[in-house]
Simulated assay, not measured.
Amino acid sequence: MMLLAQIVDTTHKLVDTAKNLPQVAAQDDLRFGDLLIKGGWIMLPIGLLAVLGLVIFFERYFTIRKAAKDESNLMSQVRTSILTGKLESAIAICRNSNSPLGRMLQKGLLRIGRPIKDIEGAIENIGKLEVSKLEKNINILGIIAGIAPMFGFLGTIYGVIKIFYDISKTDNISMGVISGGLYVKMVTSAAGLMVGIVAYVCYHILNMMVDKVILKLETDAIEFIDLLEEPSK
C-alpha cells in the first residue's frame, strides 16, 4: 500500500509539472514589443524615420489624389465660355476651381490676345510650378528608404562589437552568450529593412500618381491651346 501511495503521489507531481510547462514556455516566447525594446537606442531614429515617412506619404497621397480629380466639367465650361465670347466668365470659372488645371487655364486666358507661343509658355511655367508643389517632400521618402537600413546595420554592428567586447572581459565564448546577444541586435537590421522597404514602395507609388497627373495636365493644356486656335482656322 505504501508503494502504491508513492506511485500515486509521484504521478500527481508529474501531472502538475506538465501543467506548468506551457506557462514556462509561454514566458520564454519572443514578443514583438520586447524585441523592439531590446534593439537598443538605435531603434529610436528608425522609429522616427518610420513616423516621418508615413506622415509624408499620407499627406502627399491625399494632396495628389485631390489634384488628380476629373476636370472634364471644368474644360467643358471653359470651352463653352470661350466659344460664346465670355472670357471673364471663363477666367472666373478657372479661379473658382482652385485646382492645378484651373490655375494653368486661368494664366492662359489672361494671355489671350498675345501670340500662341506666349500663351503656351505661360501655361507651361504654371504647370511646372504646380508639379513641383505636388512633388514636395516626396524625395524625403527616397532618403528614408536609403538610410533606414543603414541605421539598422549600424545597430547590429554596434551590438556585435559589444558582444565581443563583453566576451573579452569575461573570457566566456560559449555559443549561448554569442547567439543570445546577436539575435537581439539583429532586430535593428530587420526594423531598418522593413522601414526602408515600406518607404521605397511609398516613394514609387507617389511618383506614379504624379506622373498620371502630369500626363492629364499636358493633355488638357493641349486641348486648351487647340481651342484657342480654332477661331483662327
Rank of each mutant, 00 (worst) to 15 (best):
F58L: 14
E59Q: 09
R60N: 08
R60Y: 02
R60E: 01
R60D: 01
T63A: 14
R65I: 05
R65Y: 14
A68D: 12
K69Q: 11
D70N: 15
D70L: 10
S72T: 11
M75G: 15
M75W: 08
M75N: 03
M75V: 11
Q77M: 07
V78G: 00
I82F: 08
L83T: 07
T84G: 04
T84I: 00
K86C: 09
K86R: 15
L87E: 10
L87I: 15
E88S: 13
E88M: 03
S89I: 06
S89F: 00
A90R: 06
A90K: 00
I91A: 14
A92E: 15
I93L: 13
N96V: 05
N98V: 11
S99L: 13
S99C: 10
L101H: 11
L101S: 11
G102P: 09
R103P: 03
R103E: 12
M104Y: 04
L105N: 12
Q106N: 14
K107F: 01
K107L: 10
K107H: 08
K107G: 11
G108Y: 01
R111K: 15
I112M: 15
R114C: 06
R114K: 15
D118Q: 11
G121C: 00
A122K: 08
A122S: 15
I123C: 12
K128S: 13
V131P: 00
S132K: 12
S132C: 02
K133M: 13
K136Y: 07
N137A: 05
N139G: 12
I140F: 12
G142C: 07
G142V: 06
G142K: 02
A145S: 10
G146F: 02
G146C: 03
I147M: 06
A148I: 07
A148G: 07
P149Y: 01
M150N: 08
M150T: 13
F151N: 10
F153Y: 11
L154Q: 05
T156P: 04
